[in-house]
Design a protein around this nucleic acid. Structure first.
Lengths: 199, 199
DNA sequence: TATAACATTAGACTACAGTCTGGTCAAAGG
DNA sequence: CCTTTGACCAGACTGTAGTCTAATGTTATA
């Protein structure tokens, strides 16, 4: 998910190197306690290099977050054969997404992303309807209409938006909590209720 | 909702004055284009004064946002006699909340609040279960169980959390959008679906 | 009233995200 | 081979949120 357009091999390497060092420092000391100056110092690069490859400090996390969509595809493919009906797949997939976000990203990263995404117009990833995750969701809903396991919805598009809002809400809610409750555990009731309502 | 503990009358006046000037400047030039330096200059105060009364720039908005809970109480009281059953009250109340947030606060203010709340541990308002809005929600759900208009829920507490996540999600989703779609319009399908599911 | 304790205020100062400028290097086209 | 274009990089610089210190006002209590 690293930006590949007009980048030299060396450039890509630098970008990856900065990213690795930065993520390492964030993990060790926390996002707020690591400055860009320190990142460029420890990675033996410079401010100019950093901002050549990342539009902002938070976009280091954004890069990782965007990569997650590739994982969703794999998750969906693995999960698909396990459930006979689309509605079951939809429910299981949603839980997997929540699980994956917590395990692979972690709360701090998600907090930074959610905090940045809503104030910067730079991040259009969330609103991009061609995002892989969104495509999968719509696909499963479509399947559910076809196999008649999903009923009681106005349209694929509307229910897909309902789901997106719910997932955003569950994650945001989780991000607010200072305790260690699991995202999947917190978000499950909402998803469950929605799934129940379209059965 | 201005912090009253250990404040002199003069202090409160200063706080209110700063708040008025700041909100005025934000409305005129946008939050990001108004610095704290400018606020203290135009309000003829000082940095020291500003941070005596506000823990951060964004908390000016937070103050306003917290005041909104008083409005919710009034809204609920006015709305209460219009609907015979609790489930109808719950649905109507949720829409009113969304409506109110857009009208009284506006998207920019909510963006700033949502962006700040999830990264700063300073803001416990969202997670405080004694928040007026949350009390009202639980009360209506309780009423619904009593008058038997609400069924199919595991418990008041769980469904209340479902609702809170949904409202957060709807607002966050709205905040992400660059267009001018109304919050109430965007969030309505999710609320409707949930209400339907507990009927 | 005197004084201690604390709220208030001013403004210099710090830390840090992000910008800008100027230079180097690699590759592509003539 | 030369030149042009643009990616890459270094580091000085800027703007701004938030801190610190020291002075001043206010209030409660001895």
């Amino acid at each position: 998910m690293v930006n590949l357009e007009n980048k030299t091999a060396k450039g890509i390497q630098t970008q990856l190197h900065i990213m690795e060092v930065a993520i390492g420092l964030f993990k060790k000391h926390g996002y707020d306690n690591v400055s860009v100056d320190r990142i460029v110092k420890e990675s033996k690069t410079s401010k100019g290099s950093f901002y050549q490859h990342f539009p902002s400090k938070s976009s280091i996390f954004m890069n990782r977050f965007m990569e997650l969509d590739e994982r969703y595809i794999k998750i969906y493919e693995e999960l698909k054969p396990q459930y006979p009906t689309a509605i079951e797949r939809l429910e299981a997939f949603c839980y997997e997404v929540l699980h994956c976000i917590e395990e692979d990203m972690g709360k701090e990263l998600m907090r930074v992303i959610y905090s940045a995404a809503i104030i910067s117009n730079e991040h259009t990833f969330f609103t991009n309807e061609d995002r892989k995750l969104y495509i999968i969701l719509r696909e499963i809903i479509e399947d559910g209409i076809k196999d008649n396991s999903i009923k009681n919805i106005e349209s694929t598009y509307i229910f897909y938006k309902i789901l997106v809002q719910s997932i955003l809400g569950a994650i945001y809610f989780w991000g607010l909590q200072l305790d260690n409750n699991k995202l999947e555990y917190l978000g499950r009731p909402l998803i469950k209720q929605l799934i129940m309502s379209i059965r």
